[in-house]
Design a protein around this nucleic acid. Structure first.
Lengths: 208, 208
DNA sequence: TCCCTAATGCGACGGAAGTTGCACTATGAC
DNA sequence: GTCATAGTGCAACTTCCGTCGCATTAGGGA
């Protein structure tokens, strides 16, 4: 139904794609997913709404496409020289990004919007899954460095360490809706790093 | 605007309230928050949609009211005799509840719907915050028992221990959208219990 | 029991979202 | 350069959501 890869990818089609995805990101930054409307994107991009419905299927398709594009950025995890401070910086980055997004109209809103959209749309859920998988993969470097320094035992499940460090931040932001996500980052980093050093995260049933 | 507490709480008003909230829960179980519509609730409950809009303001108000009602249940945390297995049971309960909800049309959907709605509606966000606060408060008993048994040092921040144990489960369910939430519960319980015993969770800046 | 009025029912209206059929434009193969 | 057609623009249409004014009903104090 939805043609994501047109058979004529050149010229006008390419320009339309770029204009629509740009407009989508801008709208997300301003209004979040709840305010993301095909009609507004159409008006902003100058592309007719029928075209958008045909090519992306709706608001969820727009979001998935925009996220897939954002996925190709050059983000790398922090490198402070020690596992715990790396994890803390990671968590604080998450907390800061989402907190700022909630107040201003920042681009962190795109991530928030995607998490929200994943509840309603399989396409968005899949886009989010792929995005987070990629992020966790890049974060594995943090644990790999710690392993090289001898901070943690060999065979440590890197992704699991990172999950333990950032999960409490997301929990406070989106599940329990409490304040103090930034402080939680420090505590979680301490816990995760401690457990990693003690060997609790050595590749168990979930290594992958 | 929205009159949550009518001045005539008896008779028809009470019957309408019950019928509407029942219908809301049923709709949530079948279609989630995305499919929660005032018109459908009106049709199902036999109460006119204008009445629903006047008293609850919209879909988000319905959800908040339904959740507030569910908040008054008699749920208590598991008691297995040891901290780590208590935490594991807790996390597995969460994982099972939400996984089942995702497949069938179960009541766990109400919680999922609330988390989703919190992204769009301040009322739902506040309802979710209150609900989770109450749940965390009840879960503190798990840590209190461990403290009495001497498993963890005095002054351990109970809520923080519970957050560390369940956050990775929620993270996999709703943020990274990975499989294996149940397995994550075991690992997280191990990490949280270990850190608690080591005194990492002794009341820090975030005791409250 | 009576009576004031809070609460509800009812229908119509305005607006926004999404769909569809048709005409037109410009891409890319030749 | 030419030409078939993928892709787009356009406008009308249907459906659904939320609001409003007014008539009607029933709660609960007297």
């Amino acid at each position: 139904m939805t043609r994501v890869t047109p058979r004529r990818p050149g010229g006008r089609t390419a320009r339309n794609t770029a204009a629509v995805l740009d407009a989508t990101l801008a709208e997300l930054g301003e209004s979040g997913y709840a305010g993301l409307t095909v009609e507004r994107v159409a008006a902003r991009s100058g592309v007719h709404k029928a075209t958008i419905y045909r090519r992306w299927g709706g608001a969820d398709g727009l979001l998935a496409a925009a996220l897939e594009q954002a996925d190709h950025d050059s983000w790398t995890p922090p490198d402070t020289g020690a596992l715990e401070s790396d994890l803390r910086a990671l968590g604080e980055e998450v907390a800061a990004g989402f907190s700022a997004a909630a107040e201003e109209g920042e681009e962190g809103n795109v991530a928030t919007a995607t998490i929200a959209a994943a509840f309603q749309s399989p396409a968005a859920a899949e886009a989010l899954r792929a995005f987070m998988e990629e992020r966790l993969r890049r974060c594995a470097e943090v644990v790999a460095r710690a392993e090289r320094r001898g901070e943690v035992p060999e065979g440590t499940d890197a992704a699991e360490v990172v999950r333990a460090a950032v999960a409490p931040v997301y929990f406070r932001l989106f599940i329990s809706r409490e304040e103090g996500a930034a402080e939680a980052a420090a505590r979680a980093a301490q816990v995760a790093a401690g457990a990693a050093k003690a060997g609790t995260f050595r590749a168990g049933p979930s290594d992958r």
